[in-house]
């Protein structure tokens, strides 16, 4: 496996109606990194993520995951390495019960049912959702659906976890639980989100996108302190860095971010 676990070179993409989504993207993500992908609506975050697991195949440029280029012929291998957690868990949970949904990936890889069942238990235990095993997905709460959606990906043992708006539609408590959960993972993590506070919590590195291009790539604290950059990309600093809206007190200065460990 290459040291550069994800590599995008000159990646460009247009939707079938001609709308440009990505424009000459160059990005390298190293093994074990947690990277936040932030940008306004339509910046191209989701489209970029979808290139990493072969939902879209590059129209121009190239994408490599480890030593494997993302091509129609290599999609099986790529999808075993990259696990994508979709924005809407209802898109991801399509089987009649939680256990069957989590087993869907392992069984498709070709694991025997006993081993798949063991993976189901392990993955559900990891996200603290083992008690939901026999429930139908449509009977779960938003937070539970999100946890199970993550378990469906964990069960495939990916090296890279790619998440599209992981905190969308979660209440504050579920969001905090999710952050703690993600912090406990040692995978390479790529998070596309509008939740800049979550990025501040989880990612030491951030990529700022605007209109299909990468505008900045660097340490999270440094980028989030650059008000000019954020404003130009239709973003705002995370709430924690804004302080009290009346007097400005309590503003958190994050110049060099240290992502706390799971235990911390």
């Amino acid at each position: 496996m290459s040291h550069h676990i994800v590599e995008l070179k000159g990646l460009s993409f247009r939707y079938p109606d001609g709308t440009p989504a990505l424009d000459s993207i160059d990005l390298t993500i190293h093994h074990g990194e947690s990277v936040g992908l932030v940008g306004a609506n339509g910046a191209g975050k989701s489209t970029l993520l979808q290139h990493l697991c072969g939902v879209h195949v590059p129209q121009a440029g190239r994408v490599r995951v480890g030593d494997v280029p993302v091509l129609p012929s290599t999609l099986g291998e790529v999808r075993r390495t990259v696990g994508l957690v979709f924005q809407d868990p209802d898109d991801q949970l399509f089987m009649p019960t939680v256990a069957e949904d989590v087993a869907f990936g392992p069984l498709n890889i070709g694991l025997p049912p006993e081993e798949a069942a063991q993976r189901v238990d392990e993955a559900l235990a990891q996200v603290d959702a083992l008690h939901l095993k026999h429930r139908p997905p449509h009977r779960l709460s938003g937070g539970e659906k999100r946890a199970v959606a993550i378990a469906t990906v964990l069960a495939c043992l990916p090296d890279i976890m790619v998440m599209d708006e992981p905190s969308a539609n979660l209440d504050p408590h579920s969001r905090r639980l999710l952050i703690n959960l993600l912090r406990s993972f040692h995978h390479t993590k790529i998070l596309a989100t509008h939740d800049l506070d979550m990025v501040l919590d989880l990612c030491e590195r951030t990529v700022v996108m605007h209109k299909g291009r990468i505008m900045a790539d660097g340490p999270t604290g440094e980028l989030f302190s650059d008000i000019e950059l954020l404003t130009a990309c239709a973003l705002e600093p995370p709430l924690r860095m804004q302080g009290c809206p009346l007097c400005g007190a309590g503003k958190e200065v994050v110049s060099e971010l240290t992502v706390p460990s799971a235990s911390g």
Partner: peptide
């Protein structure tokens, strides 16, 4: 989402 988890036309049954 199904393709991302290796769907090949067969629904596995656990």
């Amino acid at each position: 989402a199904m393709l991302c988890r290796g769907f090949d036309g067969q629904m596995p049954d656990l």
